[in-house]
Design a protein around this nucleic acid. Structure first.
Lengths: 214, 214
DNA sequence: TGGTGTGAATCGATTCACAGCC
DNA sequence: GGCTGTGAATCGATTCACACCA
């Protein structure tokens, strides 16, 4: 076991999360050990990439047998997760917001949406997929009081910037944004964008290229 | 105007799509010209990056004034879009599928979901957000007949692989996948993944790092 | 022999820096 | 002077190739 030095890149972390998933899958099918090339196959990356990535978390496999699935899962969890799990806030309970609530309802208590906010008075105080909905005016009070550090932003594009400003002001450290806009955020806030329209346009573009390339 | 040589990378295309959006925004506020550094500011990238990216589409700005917004928009559309627009199929009309339908309902006719499929008999033949829902058993017949080339995959993870196999078999060229699994697809199919859980875990991870780095 | 860990090499993406232009 | 377009340099990510181990 080596010492871990610096924070790995976003790409490495994304792949580590992916490895964890496919390893958990394999472990459930009672595969005790996995080779780098098997893991790579399942995750869609090269074997060398897998080995290089796993260096980052300081877990060493054994030559010949590969990686012990359960112990590697432990190492990944230790590296990726906070021991206690984390609460998240959902901002915007439209169609997308509801889909997200339903998606997270029940599963993965380590990362759960525990409070939602919306402007629509019809939604206030309702419990949707196990999550209570509060008025947007209480974002600051509730997030500050419950010390929530993560937020999912599912509001219309035209209010996304002002909303993320509020979130930054009340101590949110990470935001997953679904609004199709380039948000400006302070250094102290990690932002990731899931831009459905952009991805679709990208798919449309490249789907025309693959046919040419052969 | 230079000749465009080879297909740019995914990153470049993603940014071009993003530029188009912010330029369209600026054009509506009647800004006739944009400098590379203004465009970069709005899109969250460097000015050099903007200039380098725009080289790919062979549009030349004028020194001193920058880029003409309406003409640049035309060039971007010519490069990114198919002249006629493209139909898409949605596979899986659960909460997420419905959210996607509502999101695309009405807007952007150039890229529209024109047909949906689901297993649930309750949904069959209903029209949801302007889109008719057909039984999954008719995927092949309808997609082949209507010559649809793009699909959005919003089915549960455990049936995603078999579904994408069907799509590949009936001539789909591009798939946007929301299921949290690493799908295996043939070379002839361009796949992009929008993995909400993965992104959230990434945000959770890096939101803890920003605080350390300062 | 067939695996891992890893330095070195390669490949790609970004930035620098400056020529050319208005 | 301040802009664009772009070769050169830098930076980062991936792959290669091989030492080392069971």
């Amino acid at each position: 076991m080596k010492e871990v030095v610096s924070t790995p890149s976003e790409k490495v972390v994304s792949r580590l999360i992916l490895y964890r998933r496919v390893i958990a899958d394999a472990a459930q099918r009672s595969m005790g050990y996995l080779r780098s090339h098997e893991l790579g196959q399942m995750a869609g990356v090269s074997a060398a990439q897998v080995r290089r990535d796993l260096m980052c978390i300081g877990y060493e496999g054994s030559p010949q047998r590969g990686y012990n699935t359960t112990r590697l899962l432990d190492s990944l969890a230790e590296f990726l997760d906070l021991p206690k799990g984390q609460e998240m806030a959902l901002i915007g309970v439209g169609n997308l917001g509801r889909a997200l609530l339903s998606y997270f309802y029940g599963r993965r208590p380590s990362l759960s949406i525990s409070v939602a906010f919306d402007l629509d008075p019809q939604k206030i105080d309702r419990v949707i997929f196990g999550c209570r909905c509060y008025p947007a005016s209480e974002i600051e009070a509730i997030i500050t009081e419950r010390k929530i550090k993560l937020a999912v932003l599912a509001v219309p594009a035209n209010v996304a910037q002002e909303t993320v400003d509020i979130l930054a002001a009340c101590g949110i450290r990470g935001v997953l944004n679904f609004a199709p806009v380039a948000l400006q955020v302070p250094e102290s806030l990690y932002l990731d964008n899931l831009d459905v329209t952009l991805s679709l346009e990208k798919v449309a573009f490249f789907s025309r290229q693959v046919s040419k390339g052969g």
